[in-house]
Design a protein around this nucleic acid. Structure first.
Lengths: 187, 187, 187, 187
DNA sequence: AATGAATGAGCCTTCATTCAT
DNA sequence: TATGAATGAAGGCTCATTCAT
């Protein structure tokens, strides 16, 4: 039941926003009563936090797995991270959108926790860029901080327009983005 | 007065969110009463729409000016657009953040209008990329649609982390982003 | 309107208790809506505090007037205070009962304020007893603290049984109590 | 278990009030679940009634024992009743406070039962005063009804201020009160 | 004897909006 | 142009109670 509530909530938060979705809305869709909701969650915010944690923890775990792979170059790892981010928006688009849009509705304390985790993710990417510089895979005058923000912007922003069943697949988009970042668009 | 209300609303919407900001909050900061608000606006949504239009119209106008410039290459124009987007977040950060976050609170009708304008903006960028391909400034196998999304992602996302008085200026960030997009990060 | 709400609330709080009376109950009796209530009060507790302050401030003012009277003996003043307390329960019985029963529903802060005022009242009584000892009106080995508690107990408790239109008037009750306290019941 | 629930409930009702204490609160403190509560009690009100009956029955029994004593004067019996009431507040302060404060939360029917018992107690006291008048121990023009209310007020009110480990013991307070009632404070 | 899931009614509070002045 | 009083709908949350197991 707790899981069913969470799933339904993700759908509604994504469609209408957190503040615009009432507990009543959520439980109506599941044909249970508000009491039931409060049996499983102590507050609406706790539910939102659960959703956020579910998303970021999953993303961090996948990033970890990619970075751990021994016999891959930094370029290859960069592609895989880009692909992972795009494809996670394909498979868990609603969670992703809730994640990016609704952080402000968390309590100050919870928000801090999440911002820390998000910063860890970005920092790992920045370190990958630095490692690539050391290994002469990337330009040595690369601003790894700004560039990491740029790459994340490209991929994260895709939740605004990327459609799972659109013209381009997640793999194609990831390829185009990685090409752009690696080789540039200029002749 | 109408302008003062709009300005104050932008500040509060940016800080606390649209749904979380009450009309009362806004008028309290201006030491007037709710009646005054409803003398100038027919609804809270109208105010939000005004803010959105103010932002996108400004951005479109600036883009137009850049694209009209005769004696500039496509590369140069691309840099100028990136710079314009970053710098507008420096100078009008609050409006920008409200614009990106609060569109869902507009009525279906108003939202459509805005999405159209936003699509015009992106399409202009895509056309610039196509023109660049024709003029042999950009690779001929460039996916101008996806790449335009990528560039917008990079710049728009900067509202999440870019700080006007941070280590890098808007010009530097624009330069780094354009370099990355044009030349790539790979050796 | 604010006054009408307060009056109605006193009646209901007295009859059913503070926690057992809903804002809805109050406004229903006045044929207005809950919004109206919150236009005049910021919270249910504020209303309760208003009631408490209205009562204790009135009682303190009256006590002051009695104590200030120049040409009266301590015994006479004691009678007047007892009479005042009984008669205030006759005229403002509901307020009195709310005052004695519902203090626990105030916030910690507000409660402290009130307890201070109540303590001032009792202390004034204790000082009157001490003054009476000095002037040889009362026994010199009188425990003025415990006795003051006893007198207040007698009078305050009357809110539990005293009925304005009962067999004995407030003046008679005050006379009986004062006689008992002054002369004792023993032969 | 039933007893454990009752004890815990008394503590919580005294501290936070009946309406402000939830069944959940009570069972949490005992590390059992709500179901358990409803196995032993049919409703929250029944529990409150049990507490009330426990208190008043005990008080009535003790009063009975005092009144039955053959070789004591009415004055002595009066002292013992006052002492009994004060000391019961010392030993069972929580029950006493719940008794005096929470009667309004009983059903009309249950409340009547209790009021009857309370009236029996007061009436016994009044009869003791009458008996004292007959035996020339008390003034013959004594208003035994009002005086009995006064004595009960003095003692019952002590639950508001009497502290078991305070400056004066229960015996001392009872002595002061009885002296005041018997001999008066006037010289 | 005890649990845990679920209910449903009610509560305090907020807020966009209206309207007479 | 601006105010202040009032509305009504909705929202988050609590809680006594029920019941199958």
């Amino acid at each position: 039941m707790k899981e069913k509530i969470t799933e339904q909530a993700i759908l509604l938060f994504e469609k209408n926003g957190f503040s615009e979705t009432s507990i009543q809305d959520i439980v109506n869709h599941l044909h249970v009563t508000k009491g039931t909701f409060y049996y499983y969650f102590t507050s609406k915010e706790e539910l939102l936090m659960d959703i956020h944690n579910g998303y970021i923890d999953d993303v961090l775990k996948r990033q970890d797995q990619i970075l751990k792979e021994r016999n891959k170059s930094c370029k290859e790892k960069l592609y895989e991270i880009v692909f992972m981010l795009i494809s996670i928006i394909e498979s868990q688009g609603e969670s992703a959108r809730v994640f990016f849009r609704e952080m402000k509705n968390l309590s100050e304390e919870h928000k801090e926790d999440l911002i820390k985790k998000r910063e860890i993710f970005r920092n790992n990417l920045q370190e990958l860029l630095e490692e690539g510089k050391d290994k002469k895979e990337f330009h040595e005058d690369l601003s790894s901080d700004i560039v990491s923000f740029g790459i994340l912007g490209m991929t994260n922003w895709s939740y605004q327009w990327f459609k799972p069943n659109g013209k381009k697949s997640d793999q194609e988009v990831a390829k185009i983005f990685t090409d752009m970042v690696l080789k540039g668009i200029s002749i």
